[in-house]
Amino acid sequence: MNHHGNTMQHPSAERSHHSIEIRNLSKSFDRFRLEDVNLTLPCGSIMGVIGENGAGKTTTIKLMLNQLKANAGQITILGYDHIREEKKLKEEIGVVFDESYFHDNIKPKHISKIMARVYQRWDHEMFSDYLKQFHLPEDKITKEFSRGMKMKLSLATALSHHPKLLILDEPTSGLDPVIRNEILDIFLDFIQDEENSILFSSHITSDLEKVADYITFLHEGRIMFSESKDELLADYGLLLCGAADFSTVDKGDIIGHRENRFGHEMLIRNKAKMAQKYKGLTIDSVTLEDIMLFYVKGDQLK
């Protein structure tokens, strides 16, 4: 099981470099298989996990939290083994899901009292500061909160025990752009401390484009890539051409292809080299959404 000798021998040394290390993680269900997931999140950075619904984002997060049992693989978070040292690990992370899981008739002031008994380092003052900052009433039941307010309440809860890592599963889905931006600002604030890091799954790729340092792309239970966002956006390109030129393009260079009435669009890697190779053709820059769509929806010409 010792895939990663260093982590086992020097947890504290490792801790200073990586907040999450996932090695060869696999999990099978009846109709879905998460296969051989490898992922490393360096401290002080934000990793965005993208992928269509059902690609395995939530499964990966559930496995990290030991809510599902893996068939194979090893997960180390903040230097802790995610099963053997589960409780210690969970003291130091904050988790937010796509919806608030608080009971309808509970008030924020109750949450603070509950969490003070759950977390060793629960910070009342910090929590009520967040409530003020987010304009959330302390003395109202959460049933009366809007979706955005509930999400901010979840965030305030996740942040008020001084976590070192935030794990966020689609935290911005279903929220309007204004609130989404506010929430992204909170993430950027959190990451100011270089010890802190964030794992952030979302299918709203524009959110990740704004804040993420690394992007991991999951597709049908496999990792297609896990790389620095800037390098990704510099590396990938969109090759555009008409039907006549299309036949001259080396099919091996094409990752995904789309044809419309204006011609052919192809997702390619190694933009600079491709620009040399196909001098007469246009190469556009891409967004994360383009990359995701071409992998998921594009025709594979092979």
Binding site: L65, Q67, K90, Y101, H103, V118, Q120, I167
Partner: peptide, 18 residues
Amino acid sequence: SYDNLAKWDRFGLSLPVT
């Protein structure tokens, strides 16, 4: 029932609680 309604289990097991 209340836990179920709030889907508390998922959140509860992300806290430092065995």
